[in-house]
Design a protein around this nucleic acid. Structure first.
Length: 480
RNA sequence: GGCGGCAUGGCCAAGUGGUAAGGCAGAGGAUUGCAAAUCCUUUACCCCCAGUUCGAAUCUGGGUGCCGCCUCCA
C-alpha cells in the first residue's frame, strides 16, 4: 500500500508519487512575523511535521522549505505602534517562533527563506510576468492581471466571470480603481512616504504578499515541487495567486499536491488574531500544558477537519498522554529485542495503513494506545515495587513491543517526557519538611487518628504535594 | 449570493456496503482506615425523511443544523 493524500487541486484522495523517485520537495507557507504564534499555527505545523516525519520514516529523502513573511503592513503597523523598526519586530517574532516550534518537537525546516532576503528572485519574477504581459504597473504599484491567465481559480473552484459581480461591492477604494479586474492583486507596492522600501525598476517599494512565496519556491526548490502546504484559509486568495504567478511565469505546474489543514476553532469559531479569540502557544505551554499533550490533542483529529479547542478536550489529551508517556518511559529502559512477533507485525501494518490513508493519525494513535496498554500496566506495577513485574519487564516480546511503540510514537513526534519535577522542586516545602509530615501522618494513622492523618494529607495537597500510599504502609509523594 | 467542508455514545474522535477503533469521563470490582493513584471489567445501531441493495453509519435524492473561504489570516 502506498501513501494517499487529499489534493486540494483535484479535491480527491490521490496516491502520492514524487516527481523524482525517492525524493520529496515540500514548501510550507510560514508565518507573518508580526506577533506570537497561536494554537492554530501549532496545529498546522504539527500536522506537517508529522507528514514530513512519516515520509522520512517511509524512506523518502525530504527537502522541507518554510518561509518567513518578514515584510507586510501588519509588521509595519506593529513597529509604528511600539516605536521600533520592521526589523526589530521581525527578528523578535522569528526568535519566538523558532523557540515555540522547538518546544513542540517540530523539526526545523531544511531552509527558511525570508521575503526581505529574496528580493532579487522576487524582482526577477515580476519582470518576467511583465514581459509576458501578465502584469501591469499603475502609479508605482504592479498588479497581476488575472484575466490574462487561463486557469485562474482552479485551486479554489472560482470562476472569474461569476465572481466579478460579487466583488463589485468592494470596488471603490483608491486601489480598486487602479485595478483592471477586482481580483487583480499587487506584485509590488510603491512605498508611501516614511515607509521602509527597497529599490526596484518600478520605483521604491516592497513586494506583495503572494509573490514572495512564488519566488522563494522557485529559488529554493525549482519550478515544480511535489507538495505545497498551508492552512485551509490560504486556499483563496493566497495559493490561487501563487499558482497564477508561478505558472504564468514558468509555464510549468507549481505544485503537484496541495495539502491544507483545517482550522482550530474556539466555541465553534475559527481561532484568529483578528477575532482576538486566540491562545498563544507559549501562554498555553507556560500554563503547565505539556508540549506532548498539545501534540496528542491535535493529532487525535484528522488534519483536514476543524478542531475545537476546549479545556475539557485538552484535559482529556493530558490524561491520555500521561498513560502513553508512562509506557514510553518503560519502553526506553527496555533492552533491545530481536525479531517481531506476528502481533507486532500486524500492529505495525495497521499503523502504516492508517498513515497511508491520508495521514489518519487518529487511527494511528489507536494502535499506539493498544501497544502501550500492557507496557503502561507493567510500568505502574514496577513503580509500586512489584517484584514479579521486574522479571516480566525483561521479557523479549515485551521489550520488542516497547521498541515498536517508541518507533511509531516517534513518527508522530511523540517522545517520552521526564516531567518538570526538577524545575518544580525549587518551589514549595522542602523534601525534609515533606518527609517530616509523612512521618507525622504515619504516627496519626498508627494511633487511628484519621482526622489528623487526612488533615496532613490535605495540607500537603494544598502545597502541591500529592501523597501516594503504597501497599505495605509505604507512602510516596509527588510534586504537582 | 458563489465555492468548499462537516453532522457517529456524556465529551473528543476513527470507521465510506456486511451487524460500530481509540482517548477522556461514568459505572462495577481489586486495593485503601477513607481517599488518591494504579490494575481488571464494562457502556452507541451512527441528524431527519425517502430510495438503491440480500444487507448502509457507509451509496442516491431531499431536508435540517453547523463551519470555513470569497478582505489580512495556519
Amino acid at each position: 500500500m502506498t501513501l494517499k493524500l487529499t489534493n486540494t487541486l483535484s479535491r480527491r484522495v490521490e496516491p502520492f508519487e514524487p516527481l523524482v523517485p525517492g525524493e520529496v520537495s515540500i514548501y510550507c507557507c510560514g508565518v507573518t512575523v508580526y506577533d506570537l504564534c497561536h494554537l492554530g499555527h501549532a496545529r498546522s505545523y504539527i500536522a506537517w511535521d508529522v507528514l514530513r516525519r512519516y515520509l522520512s520514516w517511509s524512506g523518502y529523502r525530504v527537502t522541507f522549505v518554510q518561509n518567513y513573511t518578514d515584510i507586510d503592513d501588519k509588521i509595519l503597523g506593529r513597529a509604528a505602534e511600539e516605536g521600533s523598526s520592521m526589523e526589530a519586530v521581525s527578528e523578535r517574532n522569528i526568535e519566538a517562533f523558532v523557540a515555540d516550534m522547538a518546544r513542540l518537537n517540530i523539526l526545523p525546516p531544511d531552509r527558511m527563506p525570508r521575503a526581505t532576503r529574496s528580493l532579487d528572485a522576487i524582482r526577477t519574477l515580476i519582470e518576467e510576468l511583465e514581459a509576458k504581459g501578465a502584469a501591469y504597473s499603475a502609479d508605482g504599484d504592479v498588479y497581476f492581471a488575472v484575466m490574462k491567465h487561463a486557469g485562474y481559480g482552479k485551486l479554489s473552484g472560482r470562476d472569474l466571470a461569476e465572481q466579478q459581480d460579487n466583488a463589485a461591492g468592494r470596488v471603490g477604494t483608491e486601489e480598486e480603481a487602479r485595478k483592471q479586474h477586482p481580483f487583480d492583486f499587487a506584485l509590488w507596492k510603491g512605498a508611501k512616504p516614511g515607509e521602509p522600501s527597497f529599490p526596484s525598476p518600478w520605483g521604491p517599494g516592497r513586494p506583495g504578499w503572494h509573490i514572495e512565496c512564488s519566488a522563494m519556491v522557485r529559488e529554493e526548490l525549482g519550478n515544480t515541487i511535489d507538495i505545497h502546504l498551508g492552512g485551509a484559509d490560504l486556499i483563496f486568495p493566497h495559493h490561487e495567486n501563487e499558482i497564477a504567478q508561478s505558472e504564468a511565469a514558468t509555464g510549468q505546474q507549481l505544485a503537484r499536491y496541495w495539502l491544507h489543514n483545517g482550522m482550530v476553532n474556539v466555541g465553534g469559531q475559527k481561532m484568529s488574531k483578528s477575532l482576538g479569540n486566540f491562545t498563544t502557544i507559549r501562554a498555553l505551554l507556560d500554563s503547565g500544558v505539556s508540549p506532548m499533550t498539545l501534540r496528542l490533542f491535535t493529532l487525535q483529529a484528522h488534519y483536514r477537519k476543524p478542531l475545537d479547542f476546549t479545556a475539557e478536550a485538552l484535559e482529556a489529551a493530558a490524561t491520555g498522554w500521561k498513560g502513553l508517556n508512562a509506557a514510553l518511559g518503560l519502553a526506553s529502559t527496555a533492552s533491545a529485542a530481536p525479531g517481531a512477533t506476528p502481533e507486532l507485525a500486524a500492529a505495525r501494518a495497521r499503523f502504516t495503513a492508517a498513515m497511508d490513508d491520508d495521514l489518519n493519525t487518529s487511527a494511528a494513535l489507536a494502535v499506539l494506545f493498544e501497544l502501550a496498554k500492557p507496557l503502561r500496566a507493567l510500568a505502574n506495577r514496577l513503580e509500586r515495587g512489584d517484584t514479579s513485574a521486574a522479571a516480566e519487564a525483561t521479557s523479549p516480546s515485551l521489550a520488542a513491543q516497547g521498541e515498536l511503540l517508541r518507533e511509531l510514537a516517534g513518527v508522530l513526534g511523540l517522545e517520552p517526557e521526564a516531567g518538570d519535577a526538577a524545575q518544580a522542586a525549587t518551589e514549595g516545602p522542602s523534601t525534609d519538611e515533606i518527609q517530616a509530615q509523612i512521618e507525622a501522618r504515619q504516627a496519626a494513622k498508627a494511633a487511628r487518628n484519621f482526622a489528623e492523618a487526612d488533615r496532613i494529607r490535605d495540607a500537603l495537597k494544598a502545597q502541591g504535594i500529592e501523597l501516594i500510599d503504597r501497599p505495605g504502609g509505604v507512602t510516596e509523594w509527588l510534586r504537582n
